[in-house]
Nucleic acid binder design. Structure first.
Lengths: 215, 215
DNA sequence: CTTATATTTATACAAACGTATAACAATAAG
DNA sequence: CTTATTGTTATACGTTTGTATAAATATAAG
């Protein structure tokens, strides 16, 4: 009995690319890099494996696109929310800390994905470029908030000191993000956010209020 | 022309296991998880692939052993050095910060390796156990130094506060370690150590001196 | 309604994978 | 010196991998 050719509907290139990227992220996040095979990805996306080569030059380019998508998603989820340009910079800083240390930004899937990609950075210059760009982008945004927050407190740091503070705040946030995502049951609810706000505050010499406590 | 069977010398089980583990770490660190195949590992260790199954139940167990070895190596390199029980706890704390943020602990290879393993943690409970144990072990050692360092400064923190401080210091160190290893050219020599000491000091409310500055 | 286009499926293929097993030879034991 | 042991090499096997190519069909164009 020969099975009939499966029916299908045509989709836009954008939809298909998105679906394939999403399937790739799902697999790497759930089962690790080794599970992200072209057949596995195609099955997860509900298509056959030939489609991958139709939309991407090869598996490597799909992985590359998935890495970019994941990092953009992470950055957006961290920085999103109402602009609040009227609110003090310290307030916006606290918002970022909070977003960074709560799901979906800090989650086993997001951290696992990120780790898998980071392991690829060493052998692939394109992947390294994504990593580098993502790091500097986030740190620069942080620095752009630290400067006015210090000004509000009456301090005008030198460029060297500002750079050091941005590196340090970035590191605490990254470290807490990492640990919260990798060991989700090791910390109480809100514990990491609280520690993050206190630590960033201590490093900057400011007091940050928990944006979750406001009405 | 049939090539003759290659000559070999017998080695102790310990030597062989070590060589295979070292080869595994070299490959994952240099070319990523995907490159750590049984044939690649055997070639790197200078043996044939059959030996792997002779010393390990399968590839998974070799990976597991390599993960353990890497984390033990990392922890030892961080905590090593003269005991200095006579020196103040703050001094020992500074030593740990310094060791954590300089090679070989903070290096592209060490960080890349660690990331590859972390990606496996999600699907393999044994790998997760290694991660969890390593994290708590380091944090506990940190906490055991933070307490007396605060006492020296005349402060006696509550257990809750002590826990929060250990989590925070661990996070800064981890974050800086990560960024220094993943982007080795992004920071000046000694910059991360300096930032690490300042940040840990700010979080604890202490002043840490750079142990590299002493005679 | 007919035709053309190109998205999608289906199949094939060589290479590489982890594992299993048999043959060999270095070393220890007698 | 001879024998037994077992560390080590060598080879084979079935699966899975990424890629290439041909066939089919959903959709747009005329």
């Amino acid at each position: 009995m020969d099975s009939p050719r499966r029916s299908f509907t045509r989709e836009s290139a954008e939809n298909r690319r998105e679906a394939l990227i999403r399937a790739t992220l799902t697999l790497i996040g759930r089962k690790g890099v080794q599970a992200a095979t072209v057949r596995g990805i195609a099955a997860e996306a509900g298509v056959t494996l030939g489609l991958i080569r139709h939309y991407f030059e090869g598996k490597d380019e799909l992985i590359y696109a998935a890495y970019q998508a994941h990092m953009i998603q992470l950055t957006d989820a961290t920085m999103e929310g109402p602009r609040q340009s009227d609110k003090p910079a310290a307030h916006q800083l606290a918002r970022i800390v909070r977003a960074s240390l709560t799901p979906p930004v800090s989650s086993p899937k997001a951290v696992g994905l990120w780790a898998g990609f980071l392991n690829m950075v060493q052998r692939d210059p394109r992947m390294a470029e994504v990593h580098s760009r993502t790091y500097y982008d986030f740190r620069d945004r942080l620095q752009a908030l630290i400067a006015p927050a210090l000004e509000e407190a009456g301090e005008t740091p030198t460029p060297e000191r500002l750079r050091a503070l941005a590196i340090a705040c970035n590191a605490v946030i990254d470290g807490l993000w990492l640990e919260g995502g990798a060991l989700p049951d090791a910390f109480g609810p809100g514990e990491l956010v609280s520690i993050g706000l206190t630590s960033v505050g201590a490093i900057l010499g400011l007091t940050l209020y928990d944006p979750g406590e406001e009405a």
